[in-house]
C-alpha cells in the first residue's frame, strides 16, 4: 500500500524580499508536510514569516526557492492564470478583516468564487445557500456586510471559503477582530467544518486558539522552530 499523497509538501521554501538595498529573508529553507483533514495552527510572533508562509501556501505569492506540491501538483513555475485557478478551486481564504465586498449582499459575497469558476447563476445560488447553512446562517441572507455583526460577517467569509469545496481552508487570524465570545463561536464553526472533512490551516499568535488545533507549527525568524502533533480527543 502506497503512502497517502500529502495535501501539501513544502521543501526548502525560501522567500527573500528586496527592501531597498537590504535583502529580507522572510522564509528560510522551510520544510513542511501537511496531510488531508489536518487541523493545523501556525504560530509565531510578528515578523516570524507566518504571513509569508500563508501567502505561499495560498498561491498568492511564489517562493524565491524551494518546491511546493499541492495535491501532488508542482505549484512553482505556474503562470498567473494557473495560480488563479488553484486559488479558485483548491483554496478557501478566511481573513482577519473578513474582506467581504461591501456593496454585495451576503449571498452574492458567498457566490463570488463560483462566478470565477464559471458556474451558472442557478448553481451558484444553490451552492451558496448550502454553504451559508453550513456555517449556521440563514440561507436567504440578503443583508450587506455593514448590516451584519462581526461574527456574522466572519461566518459569511467562511461560507465563501467553503463554497467551492476546496482542498484547504486558510484562515489568517480569523478571530482577531472579534470579541472572545464571538471568537469562540467562530472556532466552533471551524471545528464543525473540520469534522466534516475539511483541511484547515489557521494562523494565530494566540496560544489558546492554537491549542484548539491538532498540530501546532511554530515559526521563528523564517524557520520552523517546533512542530507538535497534539493528541486531543476528537
Amino acid at each position: 500500500m502506497a503512502a497517502p499523497l500529502p495535501l501539501i509538501s513544502l521543501r526548502g521554501i525560501t522567500r527573500i524580499y528586496q527592501a531597498g538595498r537590504e535583502q529580507v529573508r522572510a522564509l528560510d529553507d522551510v520544510d513542511l508536510t501537511i496531510q488531508r483533514n489536518e487541523y493545523l495552527a501556525v504560530m509565531g510572533p510578528s515578523g516570524s514569516g507566518k504571513s509569508t508562509l500563508m501567502n505561499i501556501i495560498g498561491c498568492l505569492d511564489t517562493p524565491t526557492a524551494g518546491s511546493y506540491l499541492l495535491n501532488g501538483t508542482a505549484v512553482e513555475g505556474l503562470d498567473d492564470d494557473a495560480l488563479a485557478r488553484i486559488r479558485n478551486r483548491e483554496i478557501g481564504f478566511v481573513f482577519q478583516t473578513f474582506n467581504l465586498l461591501p456593496r454585495a449582499d451576503a449571498l452574492h459575497n458567498v457566490e463570488l468564487p463560483l462566478v470565477y469558476a464559471g458556474l451558472s447563476i442557478r448553481e451558484r445560488r444553490e451552492r451558496a445557500r448550502e454553504a451559508l447553512a453550513q456555517v449556521g446562517l440563514a440561507p436567504e441572507t440578503k443583508r450587506r456586510p455593514n448590516e451584519l455583526s462581526g461574527g456574522q460577517r466572519q461566518r459569511v467569509a467562511i461560507a465563501r471559503a467553503l463554497v467551492t469545496s476546496p482542498s484547504l481552508i486558510l484562515a489568517d487570524e480569523p478571530t482577531g477582530n472579534l470579541d472572545s465570545k464571538t471568537g469562540e463561536e467562530i472556532l466552533a464553526v471551524f471545528e464543525t467544518i473540520h469534522r466534516a472533512g475539511n483541511s484547515i490551516i489557521l494562523v494565530t499568535h494566540d496560544e489558546n486558539i492554537a491549542r484548539r488545533a491538532h498540530r501546532i507549527v511554530r515559526l521563528l525568524d523564517g524557520r520552523v522552530s517546533s512542530d507538535v502533533v497534539r493528541e486531543t480527543a476528537r
Binding site: 495560498g58 488563479a84 485557478r85 486559488r87 479558485n88 465586498l101 468564487p113 470565477y116
Partner: peptide, 16 residues
Amino acid sequence: TREIGIRRALGARQRD
C-alpha cells in the same frame, strides 16, 4: 484596490 485583491484571492484571473 482591496476589492481587486479579494477578487484575485478568490480566483479572478488578470483577464477577469
